[in-house]
Every structure is written in structure tokens, then in C-alpha cells.
């Protein structure tokens, strides 16, 4: 029997993007599409939220996919199968409201594809005709394309640099679908960097296409206590951790969200650099 919060599998699926199965049977049993966990790698670590990509209730495992962005994700990527995380809390957030809208388009960017996957799958299982547009900066960073293909009635891939599939942003591909291909779309799900979700929401607004986004603000406790993750949605202040993380993309104040996401950018950079320096010092050539 594995220990609680033990890493069961680890794989680098794209440069600096990892998938890990974590042993957390109660969460694996309980979680639903759209929910997330908060984890701490070690005793002195910070709490970071990560979307639950999938779970295997029988094995008792929860699947995470993450990109190395700073110290915490770097440390996580440096952990090995058999090691255990200090903390793993969930399932947090409100599960996605799923219904049969008709034709649903899932627009996913970069590592956000992993977070989009469980929601897209639930939409498909609810009977939606599912079209997926998955994009990344470059070919190497396109992830989970097979998984997305398996659940989608149609899959479109895009790269910003044109190294694979459609040359352009996911929004360009979506616009083409609406304007040129005249696809009738009943709802759009957008998951990715805030700037991408904003662009998708701006694109769909004039067409009146319902657009759901899954936000990724900074969090501390993740249970509604600190208010760090507050976002402006229409006239209201919402906590992404308990009221979200999904909201109506047409109502979210993305500019404010993006400013708030940059609140600790200096400290984060410093901590990451220190970590890399330490790591180099400790491992020397061994790690190379």
C-alpha cells in the first residue's frame, strides 16, 4: 500500500511539463470535473493550487499535470516516484456545472489543456457535440492531444509559430470556425493563460456565445478564508477558490486578474533563481 500523498507515477510529457499520479484515495473517490487541489511539497513550502486532471478511484490516485514555472513546481518536478508530498488538500472549488448545450467548443492553451480535459470530457459525456481547439506556442508544448482526440468529435491543433497544425492563436482558429466555417456554437469553454481566456471571451462576446473560463489566480488557503483569489465578475467580488474556479468569461475583469497574478513576481523569480543555484551547487555534474 502506498503512503498518503505518495507519488505513484511521474513522466515529463513535454519540455518542463510533467504528469504525476498522487496517492490520495478519498480525493480520487470524491472529485468531480473542474475541481482542484492545494498542495505543499515540503514542510517549508508554499500552498499552490493545481487542477485535478483525472482520477482513478480504484487505484486511489489523482492525476496532476503541471508546468515548471517557479520554485514550487521545480521542486515538485524534482521529486521521484515513491516520495510523498507534505500536503495534498481537496477536492476544492465548485464542480463544473455540466449540461447538454448542443455544440460545445473547448479552447485550451498550453498546460491549460490538462485543466480543460476533465471538463471537456464531462461535456462530452453529457451528450454535447464536442469540438476541441488545442494550442501551444510550439509543437513540443502541445500536450494531451491523444486524450483530447479520444473525447472530441473534432480536434483542431494550433501553434503560435506554425510548427504544427494551424499557424496562429487558438482564438484565430476559433474565429475562423465561427466566421468562415459557420459552425453553430452553443457554448465555449476556455482554459489557459489569463490573456488567452480574455481573448476568447472578447471574441465570443459580440456573437453572444456563452463562454465559461476556469481562472487561475494566486491562492493561499483555497477554502474561502484569505481572499487573495478574489476576482471581479460583473458587479460582484467572487472568491475563485469556493465560488469558482469557473465563471462567465464575459463578466470577468481579466485585466485586474492579470495584475493580481503578478503581485509576487519579484519574490517568485528570486526564490526560483536561488533554488536553481542551490540545486546546481548540490548536484554538480551528476544532474546534467
Amino acid at each position: 500500500m502506498p503512503e498518503l500523498f505518495e507519488i505513484l507515477t511521474k513522466e515529463e510529457i513535454a519540455p518542463k511539463i510533467y504528469r504525476m499520479d498522487i496517492y490520495a484515495p478519498a480525493i480520487a473517490q470524491k472529485r468531480r470535473a473542474g475541481q482542484f487541489v492545494i498542495l505543499r511539497v515540503y514542510e517549508r513550502g508554499e500552498r499552490i493550487p493545481l487542477t485535478i486532471v483525472d482520477s482513478d478511484p480504484e487505484q486511489g490516485s489523482v492525476l496532476l499535470v503541471f508546468q515548471v514555472m517557479g520554485k514550487t513546481t521545480a521542486m515538485l518536478s524534482d521529486m521521484e516516484v515513491g516520495e510523498r508530498l507534505a500536503d495534498f488538500v481537496g477536492p476544492l472549488g465548485s464542480p463544473t456545472h455540466i449540461e447538454n448545450y448542443g455544440t460545445a467548443v473547448c479552447v485550451a492553451g498550453g498546460v491549460g489543456t490538462a485543466a480543460a480535459y476533465p471538463i471537456a470530457r464531462a461535456l462530452k459525456e453529457a451528450g454535447n457535440h464536442l469540438i476541441s481547439i488545442v494550442g501551444a506556442r510550439t509543437k513540443d508544448l502541445l500536450i494531451m492531444t491523444q486524450e483530447m482526440e479520444a473525447i472530441s468529435d473534432r480536434l483542431e491543433l494550433t501553434t503560435d509559430d506554425g510548427s504544427y497544425g494551424f499557424h496562429g492563436f487558438v482564438t484565430d482558429r476559433l474565429k475562423k470556425m465561427i466566421d468562415e466555417e459557420k459552425v453553430h456554437i452553443d457554448m465555449v469553454l476556455a482554459v489557459g493563460p489569463a490573456i488567452m481566456m480574455k481573448a476568447v471571451s472578447d471574441l465570443t462576446r459580440p456573437y453572444g456565445i456563452k463562454t465559461i473560463v476556469s481562472l487561475n489566480p494566486i491562492m493561499v488557503d483555497g477554502t474561502g478564508m484569505c481572499g487573495m483569489c478574489r476576482v471581479r465578475v460583473g458587479d460582484e467580488i467572487k472568491f475563485a477558490c469556493v465560488d469558482g474556479p469557473e465563471f462567465d468569461g464575459h463578466l470577468v475583469d481579466f485585466d485586474e486578474l492579470m495584475k493580481r497574478q503578478r503581485m509576487f513576481v519579484e519574490q517568485e523569480r528570486k526564490a526560483y533563481e536561488e533554488y536553481l543555484k542551490d540545486k546546481q551547487g548540490k548536484c554538480g555534474e551528476g544532474k546534467r
Binding site: 517549508r44 508554499e46 514550487t72 493561499v220 481572499g227 487573495m228 526564490a271
Partner: peptide, 24 residues
């Protein structure tokens, strides 16, 4: 910020000892 956030960072997360502790 809320007092809850400020105090949670400092007390629970020991941010007053950043960067020894990771929470900024």
C-alpha cells in the same frame, strides 16, 4: 489585502521568514 491573508501568510505560512520559507 485582508487581515486574514496577511496574517495567514505570516503566521501559518511563516512568510516573515521568506525566503527560508517559500511563501512570499
Amino acid at each position: 489585502l485582508t487581515a486574514n491573508e496577511f496574517l495567514t501568510r505570516v503566521n501559518l505560512m511563516r512568510a516573515y521568514r521568506f525566503p527560508e520559507y517559500d511563501t512570499p
